[in-house]
């Protein structure tokens, strides 16, 4: 029985993979059995948990051997402190259907019985561009969706869009998918924490963690490690551990109320 399945969504480049990898590392050091699944053809979600290695993706393996020739050992790799890592992967840029690749990945992982552990962390591509990328939010998968955003308007805009997807999905019968909170991965803008906290309130949620910008994140990445592994005593590592604690203790799951674009802009101007 999986204790928790969570999904991180947010604009591309906002720091979902960094946040996911540090969260998984912190949760595993807290004694939990963790599975992290990168749901993005870019396939770099788990890289820092794997000492910088780009692991073979599920779709790579399917392409080479056909779905029936793939075994669990081909797609699940054990990284930092026993965190199990999977990358969905996808087609070459510009061809095929990446969304169907995510669906096929989930079906294969189901067949393998891979979706086990205390916590499963789904790190999903920039936006819910099609049905395939809503897969992690469907019945039986992540019930808790966290939005990763900075205080920049385009990032909030993407987060607001994802709220629309959650609102739509949560209206379905039997759907237990909910918005669990907003994570502010800061760009060091003035009043950024206040802005993102207010955004979270307006979409009927709350700010779970404010992650300030810190050079140690870049240093850790250059050393192919998570901050948790590279500088466990740093202030930043403590923030990721706090995030892990808040997520494990969080019970506030809501149906979001997305904003109109004009309201979103007005909000951003308020905190300029």
């Amino acid at each position: 029985m999986v204790m928790k399945q969570i999904a991180l969504y947010g604009k591309g480049g906002i720091g979902k993979s960094t946040t996911s990898a540090n969260l998984s590392a912190a949760l595993s050091l807290a004694g939990h059995d963790i599975l992290q699944i990168g749901c993005d053809p870019k396939r770099d979600s788990t890289r820092m948990l794997m000492q910088g290695r780009l692991i073979p993706t599920v779709m790579d393996q399917v392409r080479e051997r056909g779905a029936s020739g793939v075994t669990p050992a081909d797609v699940v790799y054990t990284g930092f402190n026993g965190v199990r890592c999977v990358e969905a992967g996808g087609p070459e840029p510009g061809v095929g259907c990446a969304g169907r690749g995510i669906i096929a990945t989930f079906q294969l992982l189901e067949k393998f019985g891979t979706l086990t552990g205390d916590v499963i962390v789904y790190d999903v591509l920039g936006d819910v561009v099609c049905g395939g990328f809503a897969m992690p939010m469907r019945e039986g998968y992540a019930q808790e969706v966290y939005l990763v955003t900075s205080g920049e308007l385009m990032s909030l805009y993407a987060a607001n869009n994802i709220c629309k997807a959650i609102e739509r999905l949560s209206a379905r019968p039997k759907s237990r998918c909910r918005l669990a909170g907003v994570i502010c991965n800061a760009k060091n803008q003035p009043k950024e924490e206040e802005l993102v906290a207010e955004f979270a309130r307006r979409v009927n949620s709350h700010l779970v963690q404010f992650i300030p910008r810190d050079r140690v994140v870049q240093l850790a990445e250059l050393n192919r490690k998570t901050v948790i592994e590279y500088e466990p005593d740093s202030k930043q590592a403590q923030i990721y551990r706090d995030l892990a604690t808040h997520i494990m203790e969080n019970t506030r799951f809501t149906i979001p109320t997305p904003l109109e674009i004009d309201d979103l802009e007005a909000l951003a101007i308020e905190y300029m």
Binding site: M59, R63, A67, G90, P91, E92, V95, G96, A104
Partner: peptide
């Protein structure tokens, strides 16, 4: 097949 759909049918 599904694989062609994912990776492109060209």
């Amino acid at each position: 097949s599904e694989t062609d759909v994912i990776f492109g049918g060209e």
